[in-house]
Amino acid sequence: MKNIITILLLLSTAMFTSCYGQTKPIGEEPLNLESFDFDTKILDLYPEKNKSKEYNGYYEIKGTVHSQLVAKDTTYINEYSENKKAIGLEYCQKSSTSIDTMAVFENQQFQKVNVATTINGTIKVINAVADEITSKQCDGLITKLVKKYGKPKKLKNNWNETFTIYEWTTKNKIIRFVSAFDDESTTMKIVIHKENKTIASGEKEPHYVGYLFIINPLLKAEVFGKMKTGDFVYLDEKMD
Rank of each mutant, 00 (worst) to 15 (best):
M1I: 04
M1F: 12
N3G: 03
I4S: 09
I4P: 00
I5S: 10
T6D: 14
I7H: 00
L8W: 05
L9N: 07
L9E: 08
L9S: 13
L11I: 14
S12M: 15
T13H: 07
M15S: 15
S18K: 12
S18E: 04
S18A: 10
S18V: 07
C19Y: 12
Y20S: 08
Q22M: 08
K24T: 13
K24E: 13
P25Y: 14
P25G: 13
E29L: 09
L33V: 09
F36Q: 04
D39L: 10
K41G: 04
I42Q: 04
L43V: 11
L43R: 12
D44N: 15
L45C: 09
L45K: 08
Y46L: 12
P47Q: 10
E48Q: 14
K51L: 15
S52T: 02
S52F: 12
E54F: 14
Y58M: 13
Y59I: 02
Y59P: 02
E60P: 00
E60W: 00
K62T: 05
K62H: 03
T64N: 06
T64Q: 06
H66T: 11
Q68R: 09
T74S: 07
N78K: 08
E79C: 05
S81I: 01
E82W: 03
E82D: 08
N83W: 06
K85I: 07
K85T: 11
A86G: 01
A86Y: 02
Y91H: 05
Y91G: 04
C92I: 15
Q93G: 09
K94L: 14
S95F: 02
T97W: 01
I99M: 07
A103F: 05
V104E: 11
E106C: 09
N107T: 15
Q108D: 13
Q109T: 08
F110A: 04
K112D: 07
N114M: 09
N114E: 12
V115G: 06
V115M: 05
V115T: 11
T117S: 06
T117Q: 04
T117G: 03
I119F: 12
G121N: 14
N127T: 06
A128G: 13
D131S: 11
E132D: 13
I133R: 08
I133V: 15
S135E: 15
K136V: 15
K136Y: 05
K136N: 14
Q137W: 05
C138F: 14
C138W: 04
D139M: 10
G140P: 03
K144W: 07
L145R: 09
L155S: 03
N157K: 01
N157Y: 03
F163E: 04
T164W: 01
T164C: 05
Y166D: 01
Y166V: 06
W168H: 11
T169H: 12
N172M: 02
I174H: 08
I174Q: 06
R176T: 06
F181I: 10
D182F: 13
E184K: 03
S185N: 14
M188P: 00
K189H: 12
I190Q: 08
V191T: 14
H193P: 00
K194I: 04
E195W: 03
A200M: 14
S201T: 15
S201K: 14
G202K: 07
P206C: 11
P206D: 07
Y211K: 06
L212A: 12
P217V: 07
P217Q: 08
L219I: 00
K220Q: 11
K220N: 13
A221C: 05
V223G: 00
F224H: 07
F224N: 13
M227Y: 00
T229V: 10
G230D: 12
G230C: 02
D236K: 09
D236E: 15
K238T: 03
